[in-house]
């Protein structure tokens, strides 16, 4: 929990990076969503990227570049975005939060339960970011492990066939486990949520091998592995059919 003590709205990326590298406690980048709760003892400066023009969604022919500041609602509404990604963006949050939460914020939060992140992974997501060393680009999976800096966009493939299967307490619940498969000319990708601290790409031929899920009140390790195997089989069968 933190309390905002200063608000910055830079108008250039350079200015934003400069703020990030300022002396003392690094400011936090506001990427929308419910993660900023202004209570608690920790003082925090924040950087609002809304003026940087990072909210565009562009069809590049074979891929789609989604600006980091595009809201989940904008992603859900944009016909250029693959249907499975649109559905995942819509399912990520309810209406009043989806309109302020962004794709970049979702990537930055690295939630292991994010269906949208799993879908971006399955669609070959690439993260563009900028930091003190300048611009950089890396696979989303790599970013989830060790990425830093300001995310500027996420690029996903726009073709292929996808299937998603989820298990939750209710139809709109954050899935206990979700499986997303994407089949394209490059082969089949399979991503899972609920089985690691971040969503992960797994080997479609042995989806649960090597996984060490966390356990919580919604699902034990044994249960998560069982459901991951079941849902993986279902989505793989669907895309391969």
């Amino acid at each position: 929990m933190s309390r905002t003590i200063a608000y910055h709205r830079p108008f250039t990326l350079e200015e934003a990076v400069g703020l990030l590298e300022s002396e003392g406690e690094a400011p936090r980048v506001l990427l929308g969503g419910g993660t900023i709760v202004n209570t608690g003892a920790v003082r925090q400066e924040v950087i609002d990227l809304q003026a940087l023009g990072l909210n565009g969604i562009n069809d590049e022919g074979g891929s789609v570049i989604i600006g980091a500041m595009a809201t989940l609602q904008a992603v859900a509404d944009d016909a250029a975005v693959p249907e499975a990604v649109r559905e995942a963006a819509k399912a990520e949050l309810p209406s009043t939060l989806r309109t302020v939460s962004t794709v970049g914020g979702t990537v930055g939060a690295r939630s292991g339960e994010s269906r949208l992140l799993a879908t971006l992974l399955a669609f070959g997501g690439e993260v563009s970011c900028v930091g003190s060393a300048g611009p950089d680009q890396m696979p989303l999976a790599t970013w989830l492990e060790s990425g830093s800096g300001i995310i500027t966009s996420i690029t996903v493939e726009s073709g292929g066939v996808a299937a998603t299967a989820v298990t939750g307490r209710t139809p709109a619940d954050v899935p206990i486990v979700a499986a997303v498969a994407h089949s394209s000319v490059d082969g089949v990708s399979l991503a899972l949520t609920g089985v690691a601290t971040t969503p992960v790409l797994v080997d479609p031929t042995s989806p649960t091998e090597g996984l060490t899920p966390f356990a919580d009140f919604r699902g034990s390790i044994e249960y998560r592995l069982s459901v991951a195997a079941t849902l993986s089989a279902r989505v793989l069968a669907e895309v391969q059919a």
Binding site: Y7, L30, T96, T99, V100
Partner: peptide
């Protein structure tokens, strides 16, 4: 923000005003 009790329109879009800083 998940209750939506603080729902307002921001540029015509429904948002939860709990999770938007006034400065934003």
């Amino acid at each position: 923000g998940e209750t939506g009790s603080a729902g307002v329109l921001l540029d015509g879009v429904l948002v939860s005003a709990d999770v938007v800083l006034a400065a934003q």
